[in-house]
Design a binder for these strands. Structure first.
Lengths: 359, 359
DNA sequence: CAAATTTGCTAAAACGCTTGATCACGGTTC
DNA sequence: GAACCGTGATCAAGCGTTTTAGCAAATTTG
């Protein structure tokens, strides 16, 4: 048993200097109480600014002084224990580092959580089921208020069983299982918006280079494209929809086919394809947006903002996804599980689009 | 006061079904003990697999069954309270979402922390001092084992005062203040490695497009460039060092000057400049690596791996930085504060470099 | 067969905090 | 002068664990 040498009387040293080596035990409520010559209850009341409590100004001051003097910090664990409800929200992500996407989800979640007095407990799982289970277990042991289960690209997902032991919200993914609340980007609206950028500038023959790999984004973005055309009274032309692997190579490789379509504008499934397409078009001596207007999707800053010319695109609202996830978890936002709440994808207009050259 | 309806006798329902609405209070040790007909002490001993404890196999089994039956999860808060030391490591970052960089630091920190049984508590501050202080306060209240203070680009930093109240390690930044342990990338070695890629392929006249803005990276990468040349017996030529703003525009804009230097290869301060330079060179009808070999720095995947041709570059070891930070915090790695520990920057060779054309 | 030892388990204190109940006391009211 | 009140503080229980000391029963020892 370790005996505190200053068990009685005033503590001798003020705000722990915190040298390199052994860090002193944190100051407790009791020590403050002792220093101020009051009970721990009183200190607690002062610390928490309880309106209902009656504390003499003189006493309050004495306590406040002692707190400052000793450098007291409440022990959140102890507080949680007694209050019964923790101030944690867990966030499990399948790929924190691969893209900036997950980072934005974290960012949004953290800001929103913070706003409501919650701290974020995060775990990266690399999509590994075992890690995932461990991560969730950890969060459950910390009695998190709830868990945000997020994926770095929009997709359907199977819920780890243990997720059910807590409140949870799916972020950027969804599941048909009952009670699975979810927030996802509104791909259809995004696709519509992307196409509308082009339409707005007067383009009528607009190609869409879709992805080859199946995903909600693939269907949604195509659907949006169709809707936008239809709204303008333009007949959907199947032959204007190409498909390629959704990366630079894919975009580059699609150039040739695209040029056979005799279009003035193209909407790419994502910015990376657009980046490849830029290379392809340039190789053909074509200029953007003069010879071909281009819009992308995703708004990957590093790419879109810095291509030459900067790429008009549609933003994936990852930050909002994270924030909305938190709100939904806390019951501040409606949810009709298991149908996901869709988040608006804003457009970002840069210089890769202008009116088509007159014929 | 809320009274548990099954305060005595066997609990009636098994593993909480966790419906949508009201979530039942988590199962406690006491409930397990009751269900198994033993004391809480016994359950605790079973749960923690204490070697020193003697528990009859039959009893152990009964407890295990009860645990499974009830879906018991230990309360980490309570554990922390009694054990006195928490299993948290705090990570404060100034920009979680701006680049994938911070994400990688988080990733590395989280993996390493996990490995040692710690969970990561993160906070994004956007470089805002007030938020920073709040974030650190939060972490201190959760009695974190220590705090990783990280920045998204390598730089000197002022320590928030409250950081001193905990163990801490600076990640990707440093401070001259005493006791400030830090891990940073080895910019000099990185610069040397970048240059060596070019030298190795036989280039002798190598330009360096440095950044205009002051930073440890600016000095370090130049220093490395000089060292590599010197090691090869090549005289450092001041005129081969250009400066530009470290983004695409900068790289693009530097093309003209570069071409006056009559070099066969160029090493860019970062990948984004290289990306701009690609555009500039292409406009001049020059090919990479045929007419000009190019290496970058940072290894920003989205860019470097997907440029045409893919860019050889040097990797900023953010993942390692995060991991090393955790190890240093836990005392598993030496530190000679306040001189930062330097982490190796590995090269990533792709196709933007080959031997210079014979004259 | 008494003493000593081992086995299996429990009682209870402690961790740092919150909070409803309670108390002492000087001042009002009737 | 008794009953009452408001004020300012304290008491003590309890949150869910861990852990040490200790107890009763079973087993071994001499």
């Amino acid at each position: 048993m370790i005996s505190q040498e200053n068990g009685s009387g005033m503590p001798s040293s003020a705000a722990a200097p915190a040298k390199q080596g052994h860090r002193p035990q944190p100051v407790t409520l009791r020590q403050v109480a002792q220093a101020a010559g009051v009970s721990t209850a009183t200190v607690s009341l002062v610390v928490n600014k309880k309106k209902s409590a009656r504390i003499a100004d003189e006493t309050r001051q004495r306590v406040l002084d002692a707190i400052r003097e000793l450098g007291y910090r409440p022990n959140a664990m102890a507080q949680t224990l007694v209050s019964g409800s923790s101030r944690f929200i867990g966030l499990v992500a399948d790929a924190i580092a691969t893209t900036p996407f997950a980072g934005q989800i974290i960012h949004g979640a953290q800001d929103e959580a913070w706003k409501h007095g919650y701290a974020l407990l995060i775990a990266n799982t690399d999509g590994n089921r075992e890690l995932e289970t461990d991560a969730i277990a950890m969060m459950l042991e910390y009695k998190v208020r709830g868990i945000l289960y997020s994926t770095w690209f929009h997709r359907a997902t199977d819920l780890p069983a243990s997720l059910r032991e807590s409140d949870f919200v799916l972020v950027n993914c969804f599941s048909a299982e009952p009670g699975a609340r979810a927030v996802v980007p509104d791909e259809v609206q995004g696709g519509r918006s992307a196409t509308e950028i082009l339409l707005k500038h007067g383009h009528r023959r607009i190609a869409f280079i879709n992805a080859t790999i199946p995903a909600p984004a693939k269907d949604g973005r195509l659907q949006g494209y169709k809707e936008a055309l239809e709204a303008e009274g333009i007949l959907f032309d199947e032959s204007l929809v190409l498909e390629a692997y959704p990366d630079q190579e894919g975009g580059y490789g699609a150039t040739e086919e695209l040029l056979k379509r005799d279009v003035t504008a193209v909407y790419c499934y994502n910015d990376r394809m657009a980046m490849g397409l830029y290379d392809g078009l340039r190789e053909q001596g074509l200029s953007i947006p003069g010879d071909m207007a281009v819009v992308g999707f995703d708004n990957q800053e590093v790419i879109a903002a810095h291509l030459r010319p900067p790429l008009s695109t549609v933003s994936l609202p990852h930050y909002e996804l994270g924030a909305a996830g938190v709100r939904m978890l806390l019951g501040l936002e409606e949810a009709q599980a298991p149908v996901p709440t869709k988040i608006y994808c804003p457009t970002v207009e840069r210089n890769s689009v202008r009116a088509p050259a007159p014929v």
